[in-house]
Design a protein around this nucleic acid. Structure first.
Length: 466
DNA sequence: TTTTGAGTTGTTCGA
DNA sequence: GTCGAACAACTCAAA
């Protein structure tokens, strides 16, 4: 037992329970302090009004409160993590810094730098698996290679799973090893250079994560039937909590496993998808910039800027696409079905490079996760692993009719179309109600920026050109 | 080494 | 409206 101070550096694990790094630090040291860095290297890339920063801020407030209940506090710094962490560790005479693995290429680089800096001062740097059940090389093919097809990956994942993988790290019994001190107030969003942003709807922090998970467990049995309908409360809405680690993946997976049945199994499968893409990113960091399938890396997309702008603004003239994009713009979230529809539309109707869309989602999604976002976009663009065949192109009208039958979701985000009946709302340009209404109230909803049937053929040609 | 079965989420067309 | 086949061939993973 080491009486020196140890730091637990929180990054995407903003909770005080079932936490690998915190558990190991508390078990091995008697003076443990938790620290969060507002990393200027990351913040510099964000818009001044950013829901993620606001979400993190709320999470930190809960962490601070939780730590204060034990006579401790949360250390918060604003600067370059690669400088702040080693400086803080030296200042506090820390013997070690504890973190959980972060698999994103930039994070791997950052952690390597921090590790070297700490080592130069004789400070240990311990890193643990925490945000996934299986990581890196834990699920490999019989030939020892990375899986690039989901279904066999999932089979192996489930076959390997046992109770030990789902055990929580019991942090509670060791909390008396938290260092006793008083930190200052959290720096305000304004001090960090950001505007206020209401994120209450996402229920930030550990408390919010628990509330959402409890709520989801009550309807998880219907998950499979309801998850594809954006107007229905089907999903768990835990993506942002998984992103920032305000929930524990072990607790989630364990509960789903225990509940069983179609709904829970389907949801568990989504959690496995999350790990599948993280594993891909670990083995193939080049997918951040390039197509998973090299032969599709340099497709000659026309990349029309006006069409891209129409897509971004939710002004394509395809109601389901526009409703999805407006949901993203207005709330920072988009239903998964709409992520597929809007992504397919950008790449295969507007013929814009999937990287443009990926970047736009990255700027806007509160639950943005590099591995999942990149994997999803490459899947939709047919450039990824396990991609759908290139000729499988979503029809935005058919998708709309199937997944928003009564147009309830479209009406929510495209109110200028709400006068249209359930049949007409999916394709207003085909309806004679349009001209009538335009005359009467001057409704301005754009005509379709492309003809799907024409665009579809162009996409087929484009993809055959590889 | 060779063989075999299968591959998240779809669309269109014709019977 | 509903149903099944075609849409290309290829690659992956395991036997």
């Amino acid at each position: 037992m080491d009486s020196h101070c140890a730091l637990v550096w929180l990054r995407r694990d903003l909770r005080l329970f079932d936490h690998a790094a915190l558990y190991h630090a508390l078990k091995q040291c008697t003076q443990v302090a938790a620290v969060f860095i507002f990393d200027t290297e990351i913040l510099a890339q964000l818009p001044r009004r950013d829901s993620r920063v606001a979400f993190i801020w709320q999470c930190l407030l809960q962490l601070k409160t939780g730590l204060m209940a034990h006579g401790s506090d949360l250390i918060v710094r604003h600067g370059k993590a690669t400088e702040e962490i080693p400086r803080l560790a030296r200042e506090r005479n820390a013997a070690a810094v504890y973190v959980n693995h972060d698999y994103e290429p930039a994070a791997v680089l950052r952690d390597a730098t921090v590790g070297r800096e700490l080592a130069a001062s004789g400070i240990a740097f311990h890193s643990y698996k925490d945000q996934v059940i299986f990581e890196k090389d834990e699920i490999l093919t019989q030939a020892g290679g990375m899986y690039s097809v989901f279904t066999p990956y999932k089979r192996n994942w489930l076959a390997k799973l046992n109770d030990a993988h789902l055990q929580s790290y019991p942090v509670q019994p060791y909390l008396q090893h938290l260092a006793k001190f008083t930190g200052g107030d959290l720096p305000s969003l304004a001090e960090l250079g950001f505007e206020e942003c209401d994120v209450d709807a996402f229920k930030p922090g550990m408390n919010g994560g628990e509330i959402l998970f409890d709520d989801f467990c009550a309807r998880i049995a219907r998950y499979r039937e309801t998850r594809d309908f954006p107007a229905v409360k089907g999903p768990s809405y835990l993506s942002v909590h998984l992103r920032f680690g305000t929930v524990s993946i072990r607790e989630l997976a364990r509960t789903a496993w225990k509940i069983g049945g179609d709904g829970a199994e389907t949801w568990l499968s989504e959690l496995i998808w999350r790990e599948f893409y993280q594993q891909i990113l670990w083995h193939r960091p080049d997918v951040v910039e390039h197509a998973f399938k090299p032969e599709y890396d340099a497709l000659p997309f026309p990349n029309n800027r006006a069409l891209f702008a129409a897509w971004c603004e939710g002004q394509t003239g395809y109601p389901i696409v526009d409703a999805g994009m407006r949901q993203l713009n207005q709330t920072g979230y988009m239903h998964n079905r709409l992520r597929m529809i809007t992504a397919s539309f950008l790449v295969k109707d507007l013929l814009v490079d999937w990287r443009w869309g990926e970047r736009y989602f990255a700027e806007r999604l509160i639950d943005y996760d590099l591995a999942a976002n990149n994997g999803g976009w490459q899947w939709a663009a047919s450039t990824g692993c396990d991609a759908q065949p290139y000729f499988r192109i979503f029809n935005p009208v058919t998708q709309s009719q199937r997944f928003d039958k009564e147009g309830a979701f479209i009406r929510r985000y495209c109110p200028e179309l709400s006068y249209l009946d359930d049949k007409a709302i999916h394709a207003p340009w085909q309806s004679d109600q349009v001209s009538l209404e335009r005359r009467n109230i001057g409704t301005r909803y754009p005509k379709p920026v492309v003809d799907h049937a024409v665009a579809r053929l162009a996409a087929l040609t484009l993809f055959k050109s590889k």
